[in-house]
Design a protein around this nucleic acid. Structure first.
Length: 217
DNA sequence: GCGACAG
DNA sequence: ATCTTGTCGC
């Protein structure tokens, strides 16, 4: 499923170097039709124990058609900007255990809306070469509040670049922050997020993955 | 120098 | 991320 991820960096300096090198591989393009989308999430237990969860949903019906869970230990501290080095390894393990290859990855976090334009969604997209997007609950950048209606959005800027959108998925609810991971366009990403979030603020992909990791012992 | 800083 | 009660709304 994923490209070999060795060598995996241990220090922050090496991690940044990996991001600088891999970001050249991000492609911005219209994705093929997305019939199934995977939701990825990591839940933390005591100490360094974690549970990585992937659920695959049929975009038309929003029913879960596959899922995988991996228990493990965090091998990298939480450092803003280096999120992928903590969560990508167990998530890639979980992706390998799926019996279907999803058409797209919907990541819990940012894609291009990142200090070096290479957030978790970009990292997972490049390593798997799957179309991917990031949907964050908090903004990585600046934005003006979008209109109050579902579907309203405003540009998300970082260092003078438009790196994503603040997208209102429900009327009168705080927007989510959408950015491209790999092999996607911003329009297609927001379109997908709206299809995945007909009722709640967050897309069903992340909701089902989060729920599975939470209910698990 | 000080605050900000995905999960 | 996680620690946590009551409350509002569908």
């Amino acid at each position: 499923m994923a490209r070999d991820l060795h060598p995996w960096p241990t220090t922050e300096a090496d991690a940044v170097a990996v991001q600088e090198r891999l970001r050249a591989e991000v492609r911005v393009e219209e994705p093929p039709q997305v019939r199934t989308a995977a939701g990825l999430d990591v839940a933390y237990r005591d100490g360094d124990d974690l549970v990585a969860v992937v659920t695959v949903l049929d975009v038309a019906t929003l029913s879960v058609v596959d899922s995988a869970v991996v228990r493990g230990k965090a091998g990298f501290p939480y450092v803003p900007g280096l999120f992928a080095f903590r969560e990508a390894p167990p998530l890639l393990d979980a992706l390998d255990r799926l019996s279907v290859r999803p058409d797209a990855l919907v990541c819990d976090g940012q894609g291009l809306a990142h200090p070096r334009r290479f957030g978790l969604a970009c990292h997972l997209g490049v390593l798997t070469d799957l179309p991917s997007i990031g949907v964050g609950k908090t903004a990585m950048g600046r934005y003006e509040p979008p209109g109050e209606e579902r579907g309203d959005w405003s540009p998300l800027s970082l260092d003078g670049d438009v790196v994503g959108r603040a997208l209102r998925t429900q009327r009168g609810v705080k927007p989510v922050f959408v950015s491209i991971g790999h092999r996607f366009t911003l329009d297609a990403a927001c379109d997908l997020v709206l299809r995945l979030a007909p009722q709640y603020r967050l897309p069903e992909t992340t909701r089902t993955a989060d729920h599975l990791g939470r209910v698990l012992d």
